[in-house]
Design a protein around this nucleic acid. Structure first.
Ligand SMILES: [Zn+2]
Length: 174
DNA sequence: CGAGTTTGACCTGCGC
DNA sequence: GCGCAGGTCAAACTCG
């Protein structure tokens, strides 16, 4: 399981980590469709686990909720969202983990056909461009702090399996 | 009124 | 076929 640790969990941190894993999973090599698996030509998807008390995490895109279902063996429901952009059919679902109520699992499905409405300008884009370095992503067991000019320290372990990636919030005592 | 949410009904694949 | 579980639709509703 890949691990990404943030000291604080603000919008920038969350969307950066998200962007990062999006690049890794959806734009990266993981997307090799098998030959006789044409039935499973589903959209690329990846999961993201976040330790958070809030259910709805800001990720830079706008979402319209289109459903909610109870999850089997879990006291918490799962919510279904679609990207509000007309031409973009990206979906995500959000649910709280049944074992650990502190953790929110977000699963993204598909590729945005457009830029994030809040990312493209200002300091965010500058940060994002340093953050996304595909070559280094491909390395295994990248143990060094990946980026630490921000008030956060982001590690990752790229022995990432299809299992959810774990983004953990760790508050600074300040 | 527009944009987004709520919520029960509906659909579909799968195992029995 | 039946029932369940996951996923989606859409009418009603809320709120600015
Ligand atoms: Zn989109």
């Amino acid at each position: 399981m890949g691990v990404c640790i943030c000291n604080t969990l603000r919008f920038v941190d969350y969307s950066l980590c998200l962007n990062f894993f999006f690049q890794f999973y959806v734009c990266g090599y993981r997307l090799k469709p098998k030959k006789n698996d044409q039935k499973r030509q589903k959209e690329a998807r990846f999961a993201f686990m976040t330790k958070s008390e809030v259910d709805h995490l800001e990720d830079g895109y706008r979402w319209r909720k289109y459903g909610q279902k109870a999850v089997k063996n879990s006291p918490y429901p799962r919510s279904y969202y679609r990207c509000t952009s007309a031409t973009c059919g990206v979906k995500k679902r959000v649910e709280r983990s049944s074992d650990d109520r502190a953790i929110v699992v977000t699963t993204y499905e598909g590729k945005h056909t457009h830029q994030s409405p809040v990312m493209p300008s200002g300091r965010f884009s500058a940060i994002a461009s340093t953050f996304v370095v595909p070559k280094q992503m491909a390395q295994s067991h990248y143990q060094q702090p990946y980026y630490h000019n921000l008030p956060l320290t982001t590690f990752f372990d790229s022995s990432i399996s299809p299992s959810p990636t774990f983004l953990q919030e760790r508050r600074l005592s300040s």
